[in-house]
Write a protein that binds this DNA or RNA. Structure first.
Lengths: 192, 192, 192, 192
DNA sequence: GATGAATGAGAATTCATTCAT
DNA sequence: GATGAATGAATTCTCATTCAT
């Protein structure tokens, strides 16, 4: 870990911050370089180009988060505990690095298409966990993809409300409520 | 003298389509104009600029949707029916005009800041409806903003999953499930 | 004098005002039309185009002023009286219509090249008047073109100083001083 | 890394030449860049924009000329000598760089407003010099601003006449005549 | 590795002018 | 005569990227 690595880290950090503050398209390489305290051209020692910078920033953290979720669910005993562990990890992730979360939130729609077929996303991990819970009879059988979407949406939208200032404070205090709500969703029977 | 109404409508329609297909920043005025079959400069007779085009497109439909939700909840008797009506309206909205929904979904993070203080958004309408239900004793008392976020996230993320091809088909078939899940969420007690 | 003439006059007046306030290149036909209360296209009923509007505005008034000077000098007896009459006319012209004067002052460098060979400008009139005074022995012989320039500059720069707010008030109060100074210039012997 | 100093100088030189030949508004950045032998975008490394280019070109030379005048008047003994020195400097300035003079002459009306309050212009220098001469009893007391305007106009208009081809040759040969005329103006008593 | 000047391909926008109504 | 929508070329400016130093 020498000079180069540190410059790269600074570029990534400042880029993400600016992307969140102004938007990706609205942030120029020049701004990123200036914020990181290096010359414009220096970025090209570390990244192929702007697109690659954005993609690597997004995918790196997005897939790493999926792996963290997967590790946690694997370690938890039973569907209910697995779900709870994942929701708490989500809350922790959100509270730990608000800039990173916002970046993933804002950039997702442009970047999701770039996820290669093989890689498991957080959505995949949660869906698979729920599917296994259904097969094990711990969760009422239903479309796992729909179930995963509902559970994720539940948590994600509360986080989003915090991002937009509709809800104050951190996400973790809501973890119990979210976990209970998620479990209620998975148990709910369609009205009609 | 030519009538500009039709040109404006064509510009709006093609702009939204291109914004959804390529992204807002990635779509040039030239492309929009060409798709609408007019010269570049013609756009500026109808919109102040690109920013205003995007903002008017977003806000117009976003707030109109809020008003539709509000009308429906007002007409429905009781919290359960109001919630159900709003969720079904959401599904109808999604299925009716997928391009419009995707545009609102993708553009929200850049545009939401531009919502003027007074205007009621769909989130506001749902939160207020739930809050009234809580005051009326029809829904267990809780933070209405959090409750609204959970209900909205539930539905929105299933819609998003359809957008990303994770779930096939239309949203309306899921309406019953979503409505039941939303009601379960509102009734759920926190685990701890 | 019907509708058309009045519209033309309004266009000319507003154009000149805007040209003075913002500059010719910085003023669009649209602005002129709006200020005159007509549609953009209407201008083209009265003027060939923007260039012609500017040129006609400049030349019309510039040459008319030359003719006024010429009439006055012809009526005055003797070189001294002729010079005085012309300087007073200049002051009157300046004080009467500040917008017109500023327009001629600002537009001159772009428009002077368009004066056709035959037409007599104010500079021509003054030079010729001085030349005749020299031939008549009333003014010491010298290069009439240089003499005219000095006399004109004398007056013009005081007017310009008023335009720029360096000198307050009207120009006419300075007429006596200017006339005496001009006469002194014409009588002065080179230092070396 | 390339050294931008020479490029900047070339841009300034060619810009000024084109501005004089065609007018500021009539000269595009593209033309300037092409004439300077660089790409369009290169200009923006050296100037904020076209406006700043014009302003910096004007103000830089205009104020530099004022400082030159001030140095000369300070070195000359007595009001008469000071005036003579300034007029000769003006002639030298005019003859030395006709392009620069024409640029200042043509651009003045758009640029003069941008002179910051503190900076001394050539007009200020001459006015102050005359005012001191009046206080010292070397020049008859009068409004120094008016006196300065007359003296400047005298010289400037002869220069202008050369610019417009009304007078042939250089300005310096007229220096003696101009100096004597200026002195005569300062000594002249109002006619009435 | 780093620098920042230079490139060159657009981008948004303006605007004189035309023309269908 | 008037209107104002439409044109289309031109303009200023931006920006990812390259490259000489």
């Amino acid at each position: 870990m020498r000079d180069g690595t540190e410059t790269r880290a600074r570029l990534e950090r400042e880029a993400m911050r600016l992307f969140v503050e102004q938007g990706v398209a609205e942030t120029s390489i020049r701004e990123v370089a200036r914020a990181a305290g290096v010359a414009e051209g220096a970025m090209y020692r570390h990244f192929v180009g702007k697109d690659e910078l954005v993609a690597s920033l997004f995918l790196g953290h997005y897939l790493k988060f999926a792996r963290a979720l997967d590790r946690l669910q694997a370690a938890a005993p039973g569907a209910r505990a697995k779900l709870d562990a994942m929701i708490r990890e989500f809350c922790r992730f959100f509270d730990d690095d608000p800039v990173l979360f916002r970046f993933l939130l804002f950039a997702q729609h442009r970047q999701l298409a770039k996820v290669s077929a093989g890689a498991a996303t957080p959505v995949d991990v949660i869906r698979d966990t729920l599917a296994r819970g259904m097969r094990a009879g711990e969760i009422p059988k239903a479309d796992a993809e729909v179930a995963a979407a509902m559970v994720i949406g539940l948590v994600l939208q509360v986080a989003t409300s915090i991002v937009y200032g509709r809800i104050r404070g951190r996400l973790m205090p809501h973890a119990g409520r979210l976990s209970a709500a998620a479990w209620a969703v998975l148990s709910a029977k369609p009205a009609r």
